[in-house]
Design a protein around this nucleic acid. Structure first.
Lengths: 228, 228
DNA sequence: CCAAAAGTGTTCACCGTACACCCATGA
DNA sequence: TCATGGGTGTACGGTGAACACTTTTGG
């Protein structure tokens, strides 16, 4: 550390620090992310990730959760740190270090996210249709997507997208949306059930003019963690 | 973003930002990390990770590389961002956000790292013998270790520990040190060679009173990347 | 009885694992 | 000739992938 230890704090200029969040969900069978249209310059009118400045006495994780709640009304969801972006001119106003997170929101939990005062608009956007976002947020969203897809293979992260009760077909749709490819129904069900992670609720889901599907729930919701 | 857009910069206090690096190598068949004994308070006399404050016009990655070079003389090695630690009181002096990295140093490249002016001492320590470090650096080192071990399974990261020319036995020692368990020689060689990533140099290594070992090198040193 | 999604087993190829002996060299 | 690490092949079991038909309901 280069700080002169005799002074209270490091005497050189400090950068600003923000937490920004890539919020994923599955809507209509498509992976989607939540964006905010910027009400003010820079990038006024562009879509951006929810996020904001770190309070000086606030933990990083708490900042991400708070900004998410303030700007979109979403709370209580899976939230994990992704990466820290700190290129020197990523924000034209001043030096800003962005500690980024990604969040996974269950399919049903969303109704409509509410817009906060400093956001002109909040909305879900299909990930595949993203055009360019404000700042370096496109790059951030792409990294979050790569991480999410990679984690599918060695974790049970996909369950974070499910409501409390769900059917195996719904779960399969989530996997298919994330991988962007169809899966074999029999192999999928075999693999999921062999994890011994979900159990039948006993109820059935009537969903149209066809055979009703069994409902399942996660056995121990507290620890839907990495398996492997 | 909550910043009033009419002012040039965010008017609330900014935290300090540091880059800290967990430097790994293999010494005498043991995974080791490079530590610096702190010359000044806080934690005076304790061992800590190399690292230091971010310059206001410097990229994060550049800061990590610079601090590593300044404090230990090591440069040109594999360096990857790990995680960002930002608990509110992790540094007693002021609010400090630590963007952490880990580095992998080839076995031979090291002679002795040189100590910088503000470090009383620099030295390699067997990872398994670590006692507690300054700040939250123990936690950081443990996370880096978990990441390193996890990456062994789906990447070719272990080659970063190898000098330009090496034998298969040496490579196997590296894997064994990282996993902390012995591997079958035949299976190991089969797996490594099937990657088609290394080639014989044509030379042999004479290393005592026994059969000489073939030397290998990485085929395309530029892209020893994730394989899977 | 027809349309639509739910539900169900078997076969095969591949890969990771277990396992033991001969080879080349220096002393 | 002996001690030491270098170098080699096969057999087995488990896992992931391919693949098609019957069941249950609503209209």
């Amino acid at each position: 550390m280069r700080a002169p230890e005799t002074t209270f704090s490091y005497p050189y200029p400090h950068p600003a620090v923000t937490a920004d969040v890539v919020v994923f969900t599955i809507r209509d069978g498509r992976l989607s992310i939540l964006l905010i249209r910027r009400a003010n310059p820079p990038y006024q009118g562009d879509w951006a990730l929810p996020g904001g400045f770190l309070d000086i006495d606030e933990d990083l994780d708490a900042c991400a959760a708070r900004e998410l709640a303030e700007e979109t009304g979403i709370s209580g969801v899976y939230l994990e740190q992704l990466y820290t972006f700190g290129a020197t001119h990523r924000d034209p106003r001043e030096r800003v270090i962005s500690v980024t997170y990604y969040a996974l929101v269950p399919q049903d939990a969303l109704a409509t996210p509410r817009a906060a005062s400093d956001a002109a608009e909040v909305g879900w956007h299909a990930f595949d249709d993203l055009t360019s976002l404000a700042f370096d947020h496109t790059e951030i969203a792409e990294m979050a997507h790569r991480r999410l897809v990679a984690k599918l293979d060695y974790s049970t992260i996909a369950f974070q997208f499910m409501p409390e009760a769900f059917t195996l077909s719904e779960l399969q749709c989530v996997y298919e949306a994330l991988r962007n490819q169809p899966l074999d129904k029999r192999n999928f069900r075999k693999r999921i059930l062999s994890l011994d992670l979900i159990e039948e609720t006993g109820r059935k889901r009537r969903n149209g003019k066809h055979r009703p599907a069994r409902e399942y729930r996660v056995r121990h919701p507290k620890r839907v963690e990495i398996i492997k």
